[in-house]
Design a protein around this nucleic acid. Structure first.
Lengths: 196, 196
DNA sequence: GACAGACGATGAACTACATTAGGAAATATG
DNA sequence: CATATTTCCTAATGTAGTTCATCGTCTGTC
């Protein structure tokens, strides 16, 4: 039960939760350990759970028709990860979700989450706010992809997600930003030269 | 009160609502008429409302640093529109929202929506599902933008949003799909030739 | 401690798409 | 119904970003 304090503390940043409710809330989660390179979700299988990261790092990506990997989401401590579309609609996934480091996660199944939402208005509110923030951040990323150049997107990324830049390898960041590793390498090199 | 039946009928597709609740729900909305080219939201002003389209069409777009317009969202009958990020966080908008035709809308303010969510678990659930679906559709669009070519994005668009293709001018669709009108024109021309 | 696989850098050739500029057709609007 | 204005098309030229191929370095791992 110890590690589940983290998810309660996290939820309490958003909605008030009593001690009694906290037990109920926490009991819907199950702690799991995953090894580096272990897959949690794969295309064509339905994402039956989503995951809250206690520690470690994960990556969600799709493989396009051309065989290229495109990173859709990254997760560190206190982030959630899954194939969002698959989870919400309980339909086959299009994404891979894989651990980039040995990680400790809290898993919640779609059914257990549904029950939490149904039995308690506060829990419903918590997940509603989570969804709203997810939608808002996706929209910001979409706008960034539509309006900014590769270089600008990289600048914004390292400014906004400094920690990610340190924790994830370059090819992951490049594929998150929608460019090739080669091009990101070129951008980085240009930046270094400009500073001197 | 007449036109507000539409929003109740719409909500009932998602959650059960009693007759009594229906009145409460509908009373949070206000019918408004907007003329073609009229703006509902502009950058730097906070989007205090979101809008449900009874009839007509609207467009949400940003203007990038280079002066280019990028369409973020389109709305026809039974769609919602606003600057999502601005509305959710009640922060200054980055988008314009403008009517492309004379339109009839139902407006709900952030405060009235918050009250609906607070007083009734069903209403909260309704808006939670709305947010989840919004997030899922944004993610699908993001993936499409990352993994598909301009031509493939256009193909998917006309397949999935046939009605949009009929109702919106080409430059709007091009800027929604993240390409120039000239390039879209080229794609269309190529398609016509291929079919014969 | 050597070998294999992952990661990043670099440069040259290529391509998907943008930009610019022009004009034709369709639609509003007085 | 006449004239703006908006929308759409065509074609030449330009460029951000990709592809491909090569090489050095670093990091496990038996």
């Amino acid at each position: 039960m110890d590690n589940k304090e983290a998810i309660v503390a996290y939820a309490r940043k958003t909605v008030p939760i009593t001690e009694l409710e906290a037990i109920e809330f926490a009991s819907a989660f199950k702690e799991i350990l995953v090894k580096k390179r272990q897959f949690l979700i794969q295309p064509n299988f339905t994402a039956k759970s989503r995951y809250f990261v206690l520690n470690g790092s994960l990556r969600a990506y799709v493989i396009g028709d051309d065989g290229q990997e495109h990173t859709i989401q990254l997760a560190l401590e206190e982030w959630w990860i899954s194939d969002y579309n698959s989870y919400i609609y309980q339909q086959p996934a299009s994404m891979f979700v894989v651990a980039l480091e040995d990680s400790r996660l809290l898993e919640i199944s779609y059914d257990d989450e549904s029950k939490l939402k149904a039995i308690n208005h506060q829990f419903e509110t918590f997940f509603r706010l989570l969804a709203e923030r997810t939608a808002a951040s996706m929209q910001r990323r979409l706008i960034s992809n539509l309006t900014k150049s590769a270089e600008e997107r990289y600048e914004l990324f390292i400014e906004r997600y400094a920690e990610f830049t340190r924790r994830f390898p370059q090819y992951v960041i490049a594929s998150y930003l929608g460019m090739t590793t080669e091009f990101l390498s070129k951008i980085r090199n240009k930046r270094v030269k400009q500073k001197s």
